[in-house]
Design a protein around this nucleic acid. Structure first.
Length: 214
DNA sequence: AAAACGGGGGC
DNA sequence: GCCCCAGTTTT
């Protein structure tokens, strides 16, 4: 894909979906972005919001969560997937932040990934949406669509990130995650992508490739 | 690199 | 009943 085409694709997607981060802005602090992102793992938007809202209404800081019963945290975040595991990890994350980071949410990839249940994608989201740093979170949508439109040819999310840094224009890096997720949820779905209503169908040959396979 | 984890909702 | 989901961890 040429630089000009990439630019065009990103411009169209930005015009279509906007570049406002999903509900990360409702999480006021980097800590709440972190916990909210953990809740979002393998969990649909509405369920994530429901869980985050219930949790933060009762416990809003690492101090409160570090002292909260795991069972109670689990009850509040019941709508999120992996709620038992996440409840345990959220408490542990809070304790580590208090004991090892002086109560401040870490702002480096390595420190964030040192927290239980925080992988590269979640850590990147915290840098990007919590600290407004330049980061490139790669989730299933980003990985899938980047390959479909031919921006990269990679097997794993980590490989995708490495290649995407080389290919995405500077000014679009911080919006890329949001654009891919929205496009992935509404049009370029994992199964049965809705190519006929896709705003960038003319820049993508995935649908054509797929027909040939049928 | 692949499987396990984990559970409510959609079909 | 089977399959999926804004991933991470373990094999």
């Amino acid at each position: 894909m040429t630089d000009k085409r990439i630019e065009k694709v990103l411009e169209i997607l930005t015009r279509t979906y906007g570049n406002n981060p999903w509900n990360w802005h409702t999480r006021q602090t980097p800590f709440q972005v972190l916990i909210g992102t953990v809740l979002s793992q393998r969990t649909r938007d509405e369920k994530t919001d429901e869980a985050a809202k219930a949790l933060f209404a009762r416990y809003s800081s690492p101090e409160m969560l570090a002292a909260a019963p795991v069972k109670e945290i689990a009850r509040l975040i019941r709508s999120a997937n992996y709620y038992n595991t996440k409840a345990q990890r959220i408490k542990e994350i809070s304790k580590i932040i208090l004991e090892r980071h002086g109560g401040d949410t870490p702002d480096t990839i390595s420190d964030l990934m040192g927290l239980p249940g925080v992988g590269r994608k979640t850590a990147s989201c915290v840098l990007l949406y919590g600290f407004k740093k330049k980061a490139l979170p790669v989730d299933t949508h980003v990985h899938r669509i980047s390959n479909r439109i031919g921006l990269v040819t990679t097997q794993t999310a980590e490989q995708s990130e490495g290649e995407l840094w080389k290919v995405i224009p500077e000014k679009y890096v911080i919006f890329y995650n949001e654009l891919m997720v929205k496009h992935g949820q509404r049009v370029c779905k994992p199964i049965s992508p809705q190519c006929p209503k896709c705003p960038i169908v003319q820049y993508c040959n995935y649908g054509i490739k797929r027909e040939k396979l049928d």
